[in-house]
Amino acid sequence: MTTTQTPTAARVRARTGWPAVAGLLLLSALPILGGVLRLEELGTDPASAPSPAIAGLIVAHIVGMSVYCLLGAFQFSPALRGRRAWHRRAGRVLIPAGMVGALASIALAVFFSGPADEFALAIVRIAFAVPMLVFLVLATLAIARRRFATHGAWMTRAYAIAITGGTQALVLIVWSVVGGETSIVSETWLVGVGFVINSLVAEGIIRRRLRRG
């Protein structure tokens, strides 16, 4: 007599990818919360509000990146990626949202109007917003050529940059606990560290996918 064995809870979690999705959503929550507070500040403090053009770029950046980070987290679920219709519909929202967020970030850095000591921080952010935009363009070209593995690799790299705000917040928190208060110089370096950490993790994920074939 044979018995049918049900999958273990660990195997189910690995197949659905929900632990990874939940972790990415939590990591996204930190920069999104900061963005919501920034939008609230723009609406409640007209005296310190930027010009309409800059305010529009800020809104576009926050909304675009928020959509990209939240919806993009679900693309790391193998179960959802297996549903081709859902995956395609999500991608048609993700790529434009990511491009809008990256373009707005680049524009905000190009037309930087903040304190002079924060200019280096703006340059660091543009140095990663440009690659994110390039990765999204390459991902679009790859899917048009039906190169699915290449498309997934470029999208993973772009997402790693988009979600860096959460990693940066964690790095800054750890640094504040261990090393005390941060200056604008140390904050600039730590923001760069957050980008590097996420990029390395993304490359590890891509290589693991390639090994699995």
Rank of each mutant, 00 (worst) to 15 (best):
Ile32Gln: 01
Ile32Val: 14
Ile32Leu: 07
Gly34Cys: 08
Gly34Arg: 10
Gly34Tyr: 00
Gly34Met: 03
Gly35Cys: 04
Gly35Leu: 04
Gly35Tyr: 01
Gly35Trp: 01
Gly35Thr: 04
Leu37Ser: 03
Leu37Asn: 04
Leu37Cys: 00
Arg38His: 09
Arg38Gln: 04
Arg38Ile: 02
Arg38Val: 00
Arg38Lys: 15
Leu39Asp: 00
Leu39Tyr: 07
Glu40Met: 13
Leu42Ile: 07
Gly43Lys: 11
Gly43Ile: 09
Thr44Pro: 03
Thr44Asp: 00
Asp45His: 15
Asp45Arg: 15
Pro46Met: 13
Pro46Gly: 04
Pro46Tyr: 08
Pro46Trp: 06
Pro46Ser: 06
Ala47Met: 01
Ala47Leu: 13
Ser48Lys: 14
Ser48Tyr: 06
Ala49Asp: 05
Ala49Asn: 12
Pro50Gln: 14
Pro50Asp: 09
Ser51Gly: 15
Ser51Trp: 03
Pro52Asp: 10
Pro52Cys: 12
Pro52Ala: 14
Ile54Cys: 05
Ala55Ile: 02
Gly56Pro: 01
Gly56Asp: 11
Gly56Ile: 05
Gly56Thr: 13
Leu57Gln: 06
Ile58Tyr: 05
Ile58Val: 15
Ile58Cys: 01
Ile58Ala: 00
Ala60Phe: 07
His61Ala: 13
His61Tyr: 01
His61Val: 01
Ile62Phe: 01
Val63Lys: 06
Val63Thr: 04
Val63Trp: 07
Gly64Asp: 02
Gly64Met: 05
Gly64Thr: 10
Gly64His: 09
Met65Lys: 08
Met65Leu: 14
Ser66Asp: 06
Val67Leu: 15
Tyr68Glu: 05
Tyr68Met: 13
Cys69Asn: 08
Cys69Thr: 05
Leu70Thr: 11
Leu70Pro: 02
Leu70Phe: 08
Leu70Asn: 02
Leu71Val: 13
Gly72Met: 12
Ala73Lys: 10
Phe74Thr: 12
Gln75Lys: 10
Phe76Lys: 12
Phe76Ile: 04
Ser77Phe: 09
Ser77Asn: 08
Ser77Gln: 10
Pro78Glu: 06
Pro78His: 10
Ala79Asp: 04
Ala79Thr: 12
Ala79Gln: 11
Ala79Leu: 14
Arg81His: 01
Gly82Leu: 07
Gly82Pro: 00
